[in-house]
Nucleic acid binder design. Structure first.
Lengths: 150, 150
DNA sequence: TATTGTTATACTCTATAACTATA
DNA sequence: TATAGTTATAGAGTATAACAATA
C-alpha cells in the first residue's frame, strides 16, 4: 500500500501518527490497572483538586455532565475514588481513596518510563524542544490584552 | 480547576493536547464535506492506490475488514468512490469518482490552511523541526539489520 | 430560574463471530 | 483450507433530552 504524498506532508496527520504511537504504549501500561488515558487524567485532576464535583471535572475534561457521570461511576467501581458529601446538598465531593493514591503513584512512574521508551531516539535537548514546540501549537492569539481597541 | 503537575510534564499528555487542538480545527474543515479525518485518510489512500481492495485499505488504516466495510459504505454513499470489479470474483477494486477527486483537491488546500493556522506561532524552522521530531517518536529500533547476532 | 446529579436513549467507531462465495 | 466481502451483534465513549432535588 503506497502512502499519499499530500497526507505525509500534513502536520496534522504527522501529529496523529505520533500521537497514536505514544498512546498505544500508554494504553498498554494502563490496561492492567483497568484504566484508560481519559480515566487516568480524571484521577490526576481529582488528586490535584480534592473535593471537586463531577460537573467541574467534566468541564476540565471537555465532556458533559452525563459523560462525567459514567466516568466517575467507573472510577468508583474500580475502587479508585469515592463520592463524599459536597459543599451543598446537590453536589458531591470527589476524593481519591488510599488504593487510588498508591496505584496512581505507580502509574506515573510507569508512564514516565513509557514516555522515555517512545522518545528513545530523541536526545534530551530534542525532547525538550519537542515539548516546547507542542505547547506553541494552536490558533494565534488575536489581541494580547482584553482591552485593546483593534 | 487546578492542573496536575505530573500530568503537565508527561510527553504523552502534551502530545494529546496538541493533537486535540489540531484535530478540532481539521474536523471543522472536513465537516461541510461530510468527512472525518479517518475518512479523508481513506480517500487519500484510495487515490494513491487506485483499485485497492477493502481489506488492504483496512490494514493501512489499522482497522479490521468489518470496520473497513462500514467506512467504504459511507464513502460510496457520499459519492466519493465506487466499487468496481476487482482482480478476482471475491475482491472489489476501490476507485475515486470525479466528484471525489475535486473535493479532495479542495480539501487538501483547506487542510494546509488549517495546519498553517494552528502552527501560526511557529517559525518555518520550528515547523520543520517539529515535523522531524514527531517522525522520530516511537520505540527504538532494536537490531538495525535482521541478521545481527546481538 | 439556574444548577447538579441522574437516567434513558441514541449515535459513532470499533471489535468479534459467523456466513457465503471464491481462491 | 484460506481469504474477501458481508451481516449481525456488542462494547466503549460520546451526546441530547428530560426529570428531581436543591440553590
Amino acid at each position: 500500500m503506497k502512502q499519499d504524498s499530500d497526507l505525509e506532508t500534513l502536520l496534522g496527520y504527522q501529529m496523529q501518527r505520533a500521537f497514536l504511537t505514544m498512546t498505544e504504549d500508554a494504553r498498554r501500561v494502563l490496561e492492567p490497572y483497568g484504566l484508560t488515558p481519559a480515566k487516568l487524567t480524571a484521577l490526576l485532576l481529582i488528586r490535584a483538586n480534592p473535593g471537586c464535583d463531577q460537573t467541574a471535572l467534566g468541564r476540565a475534561l471537555s465532556i458533559n455532565r452525563s459523560s462525567a457521570m459514567k466516568l466517575v461511576n467507573a472510577l468508583v467501581a474500580g475502587g479508585f475514588i469515592e463520592r463524599r458529601a459536597g459543599r451543598n446538598l446537590r453536589t458531591n465531593a470527589l476524593h481519591l481513596l488510599p488504593h487510588g493514591e498508591t496505584q496512581l503513584a505507580d502509574l506515573v512512574v510507569a508512564l514516565r518510563e513509557s514516555d522515555r521508551r517512545m522518545s528513545a531516539r530523541l536526545s534530551a535537548a530534542e525532547h525538550a524542544t519537542l515539548f516546547a514546540l507542542l505547547g506553541k501549537l494552536g490558533p494565534a492569539r488575536t489581541r494580547r490584552t482584553p482591552h485593546e481597541p483593534a
